[in-house]
């Protein structure tokens, strides 16, 4: 293990939030068995009281998880100075077999946490907490993911050794190897950008539809996730080339470096926010609207759809700006 301050901070964050999620899901199991709002028994009152603690603790833990995702990537980039062959976060993540799985688990947990937070916000608006069962069911599903994430993060940090030989992003994002990263890098930039702008059109149409009709919201969730994938492919195959002004540098992680004025954070923040909001609105759209939320829930979901579309618009705007200001000409 490398005793590096951000590693200590991230380990602490992983332990605290996984601990909170596991404790809360133990409570969730109890709640699902006994929850009965009509009852006035002491056990029901205790359960109701305890939901306040669990909700606050979970909001806190999920906020920590979201911040930890940013810190994790930022730190991986900084640590690349310690490994032979590493140039950016890719090298540091590749220095252990657990690196990329830990990152993917963090991203998956980010989406799960966003959905839970959205459900919690909606639920708090109803006088009878109608989504409680749904919310705590989701929590039980998230607990294994949180445990896996904490386990992978700690395994990754324990596995890191300063003398590891690793490979840089140029190795991973080349078009001649049969991996998803290579497929993305090998995509024709013109086609990738076409898909990006076309996809954005679909997102806007979907958002307009989902604002009006409740039935279209699950569909918008699917569209958001699809656009998220298209956007990442466009970053790897085209947008990064424009930012680096280099026709063969495809890395989506070098964008986060100081050399490119942390441009990646500006690019990814609205994209992740848009995808999380869109997917959460879509998933909540599958839930039948309870009577006590007849007004509040559709209003919140509509607002989430609008915010999600705004996030995607922000991403497209930032990407377009990068292309317009770049000195590289890829498409004649």
């Amino acid at each position: 293990m490398i005793l590096h301050p951000p590693i200590l901070a991230l380990t602490l964050a992983a332990l605290v939030s996984a601990g909170a999620l596991v404790a809360a899901s133990a409570f969730a199991v109890r709640l699902l068995g006994r929850w009965n709002l009509a009852s006035g028994a002491q056990s029901q009152i205790d359960l109701e009281k305890r939901t306040y603690l669990v909700a606050v603790a979970l909001r806190f833990a999920m906020a920590v998880e979201i911040a930890a995702l940013v810190l994790f990537v930022f730190n991986a980039d900084r640590m690349s100075a310690m490994f032979v062959g590493a140039m950016c976060a890719v090298g540091a993540l590749n220095a252990s077999v657990y690196g990329f799985p830990a990152l993917f688990a963090k991203i998956a947990l980010f989406f799960g946490a966003s959905l839970w937070l959205a459900a919690d916000i909606v639920d708090a608006r109803g006088r009878d907490y109608p989504l409680t069962r749904w919310k705590y069911g989701l929590l039980i599903a998230l607990a294994p993911l949180a445990l896996a994430e904490a386990g992978l993060t700690i395994a990754y940090f324990l596995d890191l050794k300063a003398d590891t030989l690793t490979s840089c992003c140029g190795k991973l994002f080349t078009s001649d190897r049969p991996t998803i990263a290579s497929e993305m890098a090998g995509l024709d930039p013109r086609m990738a950008l076409g898909m990006l702008y076309g996809g954005f059109g679909v997102v806007l149409a979907g958002a307009a539809l989902a604002r009006r009709s409740a039935r279209a919201r699950p569909l918008y969730g699917v569209v958001s996730l699809a656009f998220f994938a298209v956007a990442l492919a466009a970053v790897v195959s085209a947008i990064s080339l424009y930012v680096y002004e280099h026709p063969h540098h495809h890395c989506p992680f070098c964008l986060l470096k100081r050399e490119y004025s942390y441009f990646g954070f500006l690019l990814y923040a609205p994209l992740f926010a848009g995808a999380a909001l869109g997917a959460s609105a879509g998933a909540l759209g599958l839930v039948r609207t309870p009577a006590s939320l007849a007004h509040a829930m559709p209003a919140i979901l509509r607002r989430m759809v609008v915010l999600s579309a705004l996030g995607f618009a922000g991403f497209v705007l930032v990407a377009t700006w990068a292309i317009a200001r770049s000195g590289l000409i890829l498409t004649g």
Partner: peptide, 29 residues
């Protein structure tokens, strides 16, 4: 830089908030 400040915030704010959550809830409920 931001990395240092975030690291320090994680190391100090996080344990503090985690420690006071349960007592706050007990008080409030």
């Amino acid at each position: 830089d931001a990395l240092q400040v975030t690291t320090l915030a994680f190391l100090t704010l996080l344990p503090y908030i985690a420690a006071v959550l349960a007592p706050i809830w007990r008080t409030a409920s």
